[in-house]
Design a protein around this nucleic acid. Structure first.
Lengths: 154, 154
DNA sequence: GACGATAATGGGAGTGGTTCTCATCGTCAA
DNA sequence: TTGACGATGAGAACCACTCCCATTATCGTC
């Protein structure tokens, strides 16, 4: 029922707290960046962000996204494309995976199911055995989106 | 017993075939690139490749890695670092996942286990339900490597 | 083995995403 | 109001990567 990207009343409060913990403030620019990311249904590129954000300098966008990422409220998503995409951190939305189209570069969110996540813990445990301290994971399903699959019969 | 990165007698044969299928040849440069990747225990950056490959121009390295990737024998790995890493395609080694250190950027291979793969099949099936045609997947376990964990008590 | 067509190579210039610099502006406390 | 300090924005700088093109190697054919 509740859309995970919908209203999170205390989002500002949470974000302000996180920022304060790393010695940063919640400025108007940062608030509008979060607003833009919150209303998106997929990770956005810098240009998509600038298009939606009025009066936002590119340098400020990059700088603030980095600050927000460091504060743990924004996540930089990496794909096969040669530029980054940004989304709200999972803790502020929901843990999810990505569908990545290898043809057109489209990235779409995919909510995982409970059973799948449980299985993943096994992989985490094996990481620990190797001296690694796992914090989270990234799962991308790579293939062709519906549009590209229709276009490429191969 | 058998090290997955060890000798694969017909590697050249397989690679030559794959290249021919996309209208390319197995040249000395490409052979040496494969040799370098084969002897590595983790995905290599361009600079690591150039350091190990004598007399290899950067433009040729990039061009040939792209050709090899297109032929399906090399895989470009993306991390949080702002440059790519290359490894032999899974079909020539073994399907595996990556441990990615969020602090120092280290990438290490992790052989998957049956349960983890089962999870992925679940995720793939759900991708199909959404009109997506999955071809492969990427699973990264993100956290702190042993060295960074020791350095950062947090 | 020589020749010609075609592809591969390598150096350097070009491209574009991202970061850095710094002068200016805004914010907050006193 | 003032002063200190952080945030902002415009553009320069940076760097991974790609493109261009003259040179060189490869392969089939005579």
């Amino acid at each position: 029922m509740a859309d995970p990207r919908g209203d999170i009343p205390e989002l500002d409060t949470i974000v302000a707290l996180r920022l304060r913990q790393v010695g940063q403030r919640l400025t108007p620019r940062r608030r509008s960046l979060l607003q833009i990311l919150r209303s998106a249904i997929r990770p956005l590129t810098i240009h998509e962000i600038l298009d939606r954000g009025s009066e936002l300098a590119m340098s400020s966008a990059y700088r603030n996204l980095t600050v927000l990422e460091h504060a743990g409220v924004v996540n930089r998503v990496i794909t096969k494309e040669d530029f980054g995409r940004y989304e709200l951190a999972e803790e502020l939305t929901e843990h999810h995976h990505h569908l990545v189209c290898s043809s057109c570069g489209l990235v779409r969110d995919l909510l995982p199911d409970v059973d799948a996540e449980r299985l993943l813990n096994v992989a985490m445990r094996r990481a620990i055995e190797q001296g690694f301290a796992p914090a989270t994971h990234r799962l991308d399903i790579v293939g062709l989106c519906a549009d590209c699959a229709a276009r490429e019969p191969a």
